[in-house]
Design a protein around this nucleic acid. Structure first.
Length: 359
DNA sequence: GTGATTTGACCCTA
DNA sequence: TAGGGTCAAATCAC
């Protein structure tokens, strides 16, 4: 990055300003007797989201030390599932480049857009079965990888032919932890499988998430409870920090929101896609509108922020900052951009109510 | 019989 | 040219 601040400064400032605005609103809410607890909680969540993102932006720019981040990350409970997201703009650019000409149906290797979702999944029973991610995959190959103890398996969407869905994933058992699987998603699902899929016999994880989603759909669970559940169902992996590989619960809606624009040879989001995407983020943190994921999502206010982003690539970068806690941990492809996310969390006892903060 | 998996060969990229 | 990704025939499972 030629300038550590040039590109992320605006969103950072935006997040901080928004956080302040929300705090002011919160103060007003506190001062009015008519405000419901839900309203206050919603505002709190949006504030948290803004500050989390601001901190992430700072972290990307190297302005915050890892130790500080780890400090606020303390206290995150463990779960069998962890998500490891690594982002690379090289991959993204490559994806844009590679996708050119994918319409030709030659027998040459199909060049998929190479944005990837790198996920590490841990399986407590050691079985290679933690890969339920809402999609149906067919294994089409296995390969011994140089330097890897275990072979890499290749899967593609079973709806490849019927719905022309070219999403693939690679699953490789971790060398150092045989119970862990590194899953790399390539390409995006264009099929409708995920939203229609009803697993015949869902795993406990699935059942748990299903129940969780039902709660979301019924909107019976209070947002903070949801947030607490998300935290309790996720494990933040802090391993491998030396290699700068970050780990953070992170995902996108499974809904396909992007498309390649062959005219300008770039990644773009159609108006419909944008709406679809943003609608998926329409409620604070969690999106009942989206069937399978639990999101730390963009608040409605942030829609306007997105709207202010003129550069589509930049818009995409904004999307990568959306933190998601997906109980299934593997279901949502993520752009593989070349910067790293680092764990960020606001301390639960952050003194929002302190006078200096509110003033 | 149908669909999924395995596996060796082929092809592409770096 | 080596290594990784995909194809497709053979095999397996239901």
């Amino acid at each position: 990055m030629e300038n550590g601040w040039s590109w992320e400064q605006k969103p950072l400032i935006g997040e901080l300003i928004q956080g302040m605005e929300l705090v002011k609103q919160l103060r007003v809410q506190f001062s009015t007797t008519s405000s419901s607890p839900e309203t206050v909680e919603t505002l709190l969540q949006r504030i948290l989201a803004s500050y989390e993102k601001a901190l992430m932006i700072l972290r990307w720019s190297g302005s915050i030390g890892q130790s500080q981040i780890e400090g606020v990350m303390a206290g995150v409970p463990e779960s069998p599932i962890s998500v490891n997201v690594s982002l690379g703009t090289d991959e993204f650019d490559k994806g844009i480049k590679d996708h050119q000409g994918t319409d030709d149906i030659s027998k040459k290797r199909k060049i998929l857009p190479r944005w990837t979702d790198h996920v590490r999944v841990r399986s407590e029973n050691g079985m290679e079965g933690p890969h339920e991610d809402g999609y149906s995959w067919r294994k089409y190959g296995q390969k011994d990888i140089l330097g890897a103890k275990y072979p890499r398996s290749y899967y593609r969407c079973t709806l490849r032919n019927s719905q022309n869905c070219w999403a693939t994933k690679q699953v490789q058992r971790s060398d150092d932890d045989p119970n862990a699987f590194d899953i790399t998603y390539r390409g995006r699902h264009t099929c409708s499988h995920a939203t229609n899929l009803v697993p015949a016999s869902p795993s406990p994880e699935k059942q748990e998430q299903k129940q969780y989603n039902n709660n979301n759909h019924n909107e019976q669970e209070r947002p903070l409870d949801i947030l607490r559940d998300i935290r309790s169902s996720l494990r933040i992996v802090t391993e491998d920090l030396d290699s700068k590989e970050i780990t953070y619960p992170f995902s996108f809606p499974s809904t396909s929101f992007g498309c390649m624009n062959s005219e300008n040879n770039g990644f773009s989001l159609s108006a419909l896609d944008r709406n679809t995407l943003l609608d998926g983020f329409s409620s604070p943190f969690l999106s009942p509108a989206t069937p399978e994921s639990n999101y730390f999502a963009v608040s409605p206010l942030e829609k306007s922020n997105f709207g202010g982003v003129h550069n589509e690539h930049h818009f995409e970068s904004e999307l990568t900052k959306i933190i998601s806690a997906n109980a299934s941990a593997t279901s949502s492809p993520v752009l593989d951009l070349d910067f790293s996310l680092h764990p960020v969390e606001i301390e639960p006892n952050f003194p929002f109510d302190s006078q200096p903060f509110l003033s």
